[in-house]
């Protein structure tokens, strides 16, 4: 039995890779010139380090506001029942948690960068724990774009990249405009195809 999934690099040449070439063809014309290699122009797909849209700070601040409000209410109820303290302490809790959350949101935004490199996606993020992730394109299983209600309000979207890895596998890039998210999705899709992942596992 022949290995049917590592299409495109065999001695069979172009007949082996119809599905691959179709996707590549609708974006880049130069696939016609190089029939054996189904590689879209990698140079054009990669780019320098990118930051997120500043509007994501507002989303994160609002999100931390919501959790701060929940904590504040819980604290207010709790302090109403215990003798040393008044429900007003709930407001203090809310204020403190909210300020902390807002500060973290801003710092988180500043720490976030991603880079579409030649053979891998590179991410840097994190305030308390700084995390740098390398996701080789060969390992990408699929790419999603998602938009939560708050993100929609601010005109933002998230791109989620799935791998078969067992731990910390799925990376998401928040705070992109829908156009950027879609652009990133197609770029990653093409780079993943160009990387000719056979088993991905």
């Amino acid at each position: 039995m022949d290995d049917t999934d590592s299409a495109g690099d065999g001695p069979f040449g172009s007949e082996l890779a119809p599905a691959v070439r179709r996707v590549a063809a609708d974006t880049d014309a130069d696939t016609e010139e190089s029939p054996g290699r189904n590689v879209p122009d990698i140079e054009a797909l990669t780019g320098p380090q990118q930051t997120l849209e500043p509007a994501i700070q507002a989303v994160w601040i609002l999100q931390s506001g919501i959790s701060a409000a929940v904590l504040g209410v819980i604290a207010a109820v709790a302090f109403a029942f215990f003798s040393p303290g008044t429900p007003r302490l709930g407001g203090v809790v809310f204020g403190a948690v909210f300020l902390l959350g807002a500060a973290l949101s801003v710092l988180r935004y500043r720490s976030w960068t991603y880079e579409v490199r030649e053979d891998s996606l590179y991410l840097e993020r994190g305030v308390v724990t700084r995390v740098k992730t390398v996701v080789p394109y060969v390992r990408i299983q699929h790419v999603d774009a998602s938009r939560g209600p708050l993100e929609r309000t601010f005109g933002l979207a998230t791109t989620v990249v799935y791998t078969a890895g067992s731990r910390g596998a799925d990376v998401s890039i928040p705070g992109l405009t829908p156009e950027r998210a879609e652009d990133l999705q197609t770029r990653l899709k093409q780079l993943a195809i160009a990387a000719e992942g056979e088993d991905a596992v």
């Binding site: 724990t129 700084r130 995390v131 740098k132 992730t133 080789p136 390992r139 791998t163 890895g165 910390g168």
Partner: peptide, 10 residues
Amino acid sequence: VQTVVDSQTI
């Protein structure tokens, strides 16, 4: 290798 992650806590 699927992904390579390097992380640093505070």
